[in-house]
Amino acid sequence: MKTGTSRQVVLRLAHRGEQHIRWMFLWIAGLGLLWMWDLFFLNRPALSLVRAALFNSLLAGLLVVFFSMTLGWASGLLVYSLEKRKNTLPYIAVTFFFNLIRSLPQIVGILLGYIVLTSLIVQGILRAPFLQLLSMSFVVSLFVFLEVADLIRERIAHYKQLDFFDAMLCCGIKESRIVNVEILRKNSLAHLVHKGVAVFGMALFLQCSIDFILSVGLSTEVSSSNFPATLGSMLARMDSKQDILAISMVFSDLSYVSALCTRHLQGLNIAFAIVYTLVCVHNIANGLVRRYHL
């Protein structure tokens, strides 16, 4: 029989307000379990490749969040200040440019960015793997940061309608401090964290997709073999693709499930890591919405 304390823990975890924390634990635990499984069944060279790919993908996702937050914050403030000062022409030019980026499908923009990066790598300008990862993340963030910029503008517009904005101005507090500290840092942190989580999920999805496309479709100069290994490029390898193709064996022979989990581990591992992370990120973001009534 359960003790009172363990029942309380179960109830607390079941409480809907804690959903984001629960999913965070589940994500870490899931990847940990996957890791343990790999230690037993996956061969060492593949294990080290998968480990590097997972690390690079997660790091790239975090870098995209950092770049998007920085670019989004700066561009949100830029548009706000241009709007406030009634600089009509620069305001129109900047919003026109941002809307143009918005209209370009993200994958197309990133693909073009990767072509530029490849030429820089071929010319020997981008050599260090970390620098390559940094530039890949920057390219992705160029097509994601507008979500953050929109949020920043929305939060400022929301608080500007309230009395406290005018009251603070009357108290002699500088507008830049009201916007950056009082509105964005103190009163919009939950919104920004939520957006950061969503951007992380989007970045992972886009990066994996573009790396997969480059590895499958372009086999010569514009190749992801020029870039550091990520989950997408690992999934595009022939052996990983064969592992994924093996899933359809289950439709004809259900007992093949056990073979999938031991013999076709590399591809399944990577696919699972991508999908599981995306599901967890989605639920963490939802949990934040519930917890903070965003």
């Binding site: 997969f212 499958v216 359809s248 599901v279």
Partner: peptide, 20 residues
């Protein structure tokens, strides 16, 4: 259902490629 809905298209596509 969630796993399918969140899967990138190429994962689902290759999973079914041999059967459909």
């Amino acid at each position: 259902a969630y796993a399918i809905l969140f899967s990138p298209a190429y994962v689902i596509g290759y999973s079914f490629k041999a059967s459909f």
